[in-house]
């Protein structure tokens, strides 16, 4: 392809996105669009999968059968979300094997929030309420993204997420209406999960060099700071209903802007966890890689069985 033809294709492509046309897998796309999407979609898929680990920790210890069934269903949903997203990513020409490999070797990232431990039952409430709450804000914004398979996966995921947040909030509500010790447990969980949840929206706009390009490709529909503000504005009144307080002395309603002002995030901690030095990075990767390696014989056996069945059918037919 000549350079002139390439520029022409790129221009047609940008115009299609401008007109809100969806891009489908077999359509021509700039290599950078493909690579950026592989990176973002796979990172999102990995987050769904690794995200099962901190919550899975509590399935056997949930305080009632009702809570156990709900948590199990939620974790199963997250596995499904991982699968929708991996499938969307594979349409861009990368294999599932390769995607797993990138996760397992640390080449690909996943959301840092899952590198924090779940030490009490209230953490399961806080995760549903705050972490799924933050994820929903991110994901609703992506339902109209330009890449068709990603947008369709997002629509399915968003439909399923609202139960996740409600079940989390209900856990918090129950604890907050319980004994003093239970309420203290809820407050402690909020204290530990609040700031990492705000970090889920990523670096500040001025420190996010890819934002402009991502906005242009509609891979991002709102900036990190806009989404974070939306999260704070909607979560503060929810904490008030629970009767617990958000651990931020600078949190204050701003009459003029119609938003809450809030304190500065500890960006040093954010980058430390991104770089692999969070409380559970190592444990998460060991669990993930372990599951993959220990499951190898099952995958091989299933494939051997399938081949045997096919051979039998072929033998019968001939």
């Amino acid at each position: 392809m000549s350079e002139k033809e390439l520029i022409n294709l790129e221009q047609i492509f940008e115009e299609r996105i401008e007109r809100d046309e969806k891009i489908e897998p077999k359509d021509w796309m700039p290599e950078k669009y493909r690579q950026t999407h592989i990176r973002q979609i796979s990172q999102h898929a990995h987050s769904e999968v690794v995200g099962m680990l901190p919550e899975g920790n509590w399935i056997t210890r949930a305080p009632s059968l009702r809570r156990k069934a709900a948590l199990l269903a939620k974790v199963q949903d997250e596995a499904g979300h991982g699968l929708y997203l991996y499938s969307a990513c594979e349409t861009l020409g990368i294999s599932r094997e390769e995607l797993y490999q990138q996760l397992h070797t640390g080449k690909a990232k996943y959301s840092s929030i899952f590198n924090y431990p779940t030490i009490t039952w209230a953490d399961i409430g806080a995760i549903g309420w705050l972490v799924d709450g933050a994820a929903i804000i991110n994901q609703v914004a992506l339902c109209t993204t330009s890449f068709g398979p990603y947008a369709r996966a997002m629509v399915r995921i968003c439909k399923e997420e609202s139960f996740h947040q409600r079940q989390g909030y209900e856990i918090m509500l129950t604890l907050c209406n319980g004994t003093e010790a239970q309420k203290a447990m809820a407050q402690d969980a909020l204290n530990r999960w609040w700031w990492p949840s705000l970090m889920m929206f990523g670096p500040k706009d001025e420190d996010s060099p890819h934002t402009a390009q991502s906005m242009k490709w509609k891979l991002k529909r709102k900036t990190n700071d806009e989404l974070r503000q939306q999260f704070v504005d909607q979560t503060v009144p929810q904490a008030a209903i629970l009767g617990i307080s958000i651990p931020d002395p600078h949190l204050k309603w701003n009459e003029a802007s119609g938003h809450y002002n809030f304190g500065e995030i500890d960006w040093e901690e954010f980058w430390q966890v991104v770089k692999g030095h969070g409380p559970c990075n190592k444990e998460r990767m060991e669990a993930r890689v372990g599951a993959w390696e220990e499951g190898a014989w099952v995958r091989e056996a299933a494939m051997a069985h399938a081949n045997k069945q096919t051979n039998k059918k072929v033998a019968k037919a001939s």
Binding site: A73, Q76, D77, G80, L83, Y84, S87, E90, R96, R152, A153, R156, E160, R299, A302, M303, H305, A306, Q309, T310
Partner: peptide
Amino acid sequence: FGSLHAADAEMALENARDVYTRR
């Protein structure tokens, strides 16, 4: 509805049920 990996058709059907028709 989407796609998935499976060893054979039977497993593909079962996985599809679990992934795409939970509700």
